[in-house]
Write a protein that binds this DNA or RNA. Structure first.
Lengths: 223, 223
DNA sequence: ACTTGTACAGCTGTATACAATAGTACAAAA
DNA sequence: TTTTGTACTATTGTATACAGCTGTACAAGT
């Protein structure tokens, strides 16, 4: 799916509008005209319409029939809720990953953690964000559940901006890698209960860190 | 959103295709041609395209660029996974509902439980399905979390067919109402821990019941 | 027989045309 | 002044036209 979002025109339009909303370029309450947005992106109404309809399903815009699309951005409460929901579901994902992970996936997970530790020293923050994303995405995949993967990927996308600011903090990044390592070890030891608990706590800690640094700022336009 | 699905042409098309997939009319692997589907429903390509793009986001179809839309039905494993995911999230929903429910919502919840007990005696099974749906939907809403509500409503829709067969079983329906009542009481008593635990167990029991009666049959076309 | 090239048919991707609807400005009447 | 009716404009809803891609059938060459 992600791949298609990159190559097709509609996919690019979807991503750009979504990013526009998540980054605050389009603020909550803004009305998105099909023609206007189309001109902005250099395309006609059709791809824009399709993208807006998809964003409606995601909840990022509200479509009022015969009227238009209204931006329904993400508030700071939404972000907080998502982290809490994720703390539950990442626990389940870690549990299922423990039960279903393949040798190959386990190796990849180890590689990611190693790379993270390496980058930690070099303070490559953008790399850290990427590796953090890959770690979680791989656990979702290893859970071997389309449904769980689907919902977690969606949520992950929503909090993309919040996430970037969290990992950027060096102190938090260090702890985060340590937590990832512990989760990895629990998975490798086939200790599903522990993996679930660790993953659960990991997200709660990220959330706590976000709260401390005041995630309101990130979404000041929407919240 | 639901309202708009009913009134707009695109919304109706979306619902019809989705129902077609969930009911097994369109089986996994089927290719949905825009023109063909359009003719079936008496509309042009445009609304069909928009609906298919939305279903892609839901994961019910896979869109292969320049090729078409392939049905990606729900397997029995998906249903099982959804119930497990829901058991986690309904617990959270009940917890948050306990903390945020309004007097009005509490009254409505009580009314639903009362009606359920009444219908139980009259053995009105379709009414029971409706009331069960309303009970859960109301808890989602009372949780006062857009995000949680959104994801749970989506999942609920996915397992619609499995749900109908579960509540249809009289014995299970009786127990289900009893469990709903217990959850309601925990919410009324502001006992969030208990509400969470009860809601969690409630879904697990529904799942267990589904397993016993062999939910494979319901999705024989897809699983 | 097998491979390769080519034309064709069918479908999607995108743009645009036309219809329907909703909001607005403004004038006429009370 | 307020209300109401009306015409107009802007925007969406739907259909369709056209371009581009993909897979296939079939023939030509090896």
């Amino acid at each position: 799916m992600k791949e298609q979002e990159d190559q097709s025109l509609r996919g690019r339009v979807l991503q750009q509008i979504r990013d526009g909303i998540l980054s605050g370029k389009y603020a909550t309450g803004d009305e998105l005209r099909e023609i206007t947005v189309g001109k902005e992106l250099g395309v006609s109404r059709t791809p824009v319409r399709e993208a807006l309809r998809q964003l409606e399903l995601e909840g990022l815009v509200e479509i009022i029939p015969n009227k238009g699309a209204r931006v329904n951005g993400i508030t700071s409460k939404d972000v907080k809720d998502i982290y809490m929901i994720r703390s539950y579901l990442e626990g389940l994902a870690a549990r299922w990953a423990t039960e279903n992970i393949t040798e190959e996936e386990l190796n990849e997970l180890e590689e990611i953690v190693l790379l993270s530790e390496f980058n930690l020293r070099k303070e490559q923050q953008d790399q850290m964000v990427l590796l953090d994303g890959r770690f979680h995405a791989l656990i979702y995949k290893a859970s071997n559940s389309r449904m769980l993967d689907h919902v977690l990927v969606d949520f992950h996308r929503y909090v993309k901006h919040a996430r970037a600011s969290s990992v950027a903090e060096k102190d938090r990044a260090k702890k985060s890698v340590r937590e990832h390592k512990a989760i990895l070890e629990a998975i490798r030891d086939h200790d599903a209960d522990l993996a679930e608990q660790l993953a659960n706590e990991h997200i709660l800690r990220v959330m706590e860190n976000l709260r401390r640094q005041g995630y309101e700022e990130i979404n000041k336009d929407n919240g």
